[in-house]
């Protein structure tokens, strides 16, 4: 069985790196507003999601909890300017779901900006918002966001899931990188980022229990650490996580001494901001996978016969 210490250490290292490089979570103030102001919102939202998972699972040490709290305060107070940047972004692209998605984990953690909430309640009532064209896995994420705001999801998640790749449980030997990311995100949305493993319908959980080991084996050998990390999160969302020893050992070995996780194979070289943009995501994923898997390992320990 995989050492819980090894799994836990991946997360502590990742959080140290994220904290030390928190200035990388930055917005491009001078970017052409028509182009990509909202693009740089996503990392901030992902950071908040992972910190929320960390607080929720209760497996963080006091040092980790402190780093996570400081990261959140930095992201909310400094990067998002108390949410005012989200309001601005929403005014640039009124129909974009991104500001609302980024705001949600902050709201759930106790941060608040009533203006962005009012805007979301108005926008999500529009027929146009429900009609926005997007892949099913993306729509599933928006329905989950509506539910978590306390609004009726349009359409209900149970309807959307049937249209996702995973929802149709297709031939597992056709999976490639893009499909694999669609699978992981379908699981993230259905389980509220691992909070509610029961949100994964039984046929999908059964399907994943059979085929996930193959995909873990594959992307480990391909050294695709970002995707492997997401697949390790999926494993931790299953009714009986395998905490796959070979995958976790390979994942841990890929992590740098300073805690950074390369996206693919080895660390990129170059301008620090560019390096941050490449590795922040796999490093966040490493923290996410570590926290969830540590939590599941402790649960298994608690249920093991004495």
């Amino acid at each position: 069985m995989t050492s819980t210490r090894l799994i836990h250490t991946v997360g502590t290292g990742a959080l140290e790196w994220l904290h030390a490089h928190r200035d990388g979570f930055r917005l491009e103030q001078d970017v052409d507003p028509e182009v990509g102001f909202l693009e740089r919102f996503k990392p901030v939202g992902e950071l908040a999601v992972i910190c929320k998972v960390l607080f929720r699972e209760g497996v963080a040490g006091s040092r980790q909890a402190q780093l996570a709290r400081q990261l959140l305060d930095h992201a909310w107070g400094h990067v998002l300017d108390g949410g005012r940047v989200l309001v601005r972004g929403q005014r640039i692209e009124p129909l974009s779901p991104v500001p609302f998605e980024v705001y949600l984990p902050f709201k759930e953690l106790g941060f608040s900006n009533p203006e962005i909430e009012r805007a979301f309640r108005r926008v999500q009532r529009l027929e146009s918002f429900a009609a926005l064209e997007m892949p099913s896995v993306r729509r599933l994420g928006l329905s989950a966001v509506q539910r978590r705001y306390g609004l009726p999801p349009r359409p209900p998640e149970s309807e959307v899931v049937a249209g996702t790749w995973l929802g149709r449980t297709p031939e597992p030997w056709t999976v490639e990188g893009h499909i694999a990311y669609d699978i992981t995100h379908t699981v993230f949305h259905l389980t509220d980022w691992g909070e509610n493993p029961d949100g994964l319908p039984a046929p999908l959980a059964d399907y994943l229990a059979v085929w996930l080991p193959v995909w873990l084996d594959d992307w480990l050998d391909l050294q695709r650490w970002d995707l492997l990390g997401e697949l390790l999160v999926v494993d931790a969302c299953l009714p009986r996580p395998t905490l796959d020893e070979r995958a976790w050992e390979g994942f841990a070995a890929a992590q740098q001494p300073d805690g950074a996780m390369p996206a693919v194979r080895t660390m990129p070289q170059g301008d620090p901001d560019e390096v941050f943009d490449v590795v922040y995501h796999p490093t966040l994923v490493a923290a996410f996978a570590s926290v969830l898997a540590t939590s599941r390992a402790l649960t298994q320990l608690a249920h093991a016969p004495a």
Binding site: V175, V210, W211, V214, D218
Partner: peptide, 11 residues
């Protein structure tokens, strides 16, 4: 064996 089949096709 089914997992091995998937692995072989993937590779």
């Amino acid at each position: 064996v089914a997992r091995g089949f998937v692995r072989a096709v993937r590779r």
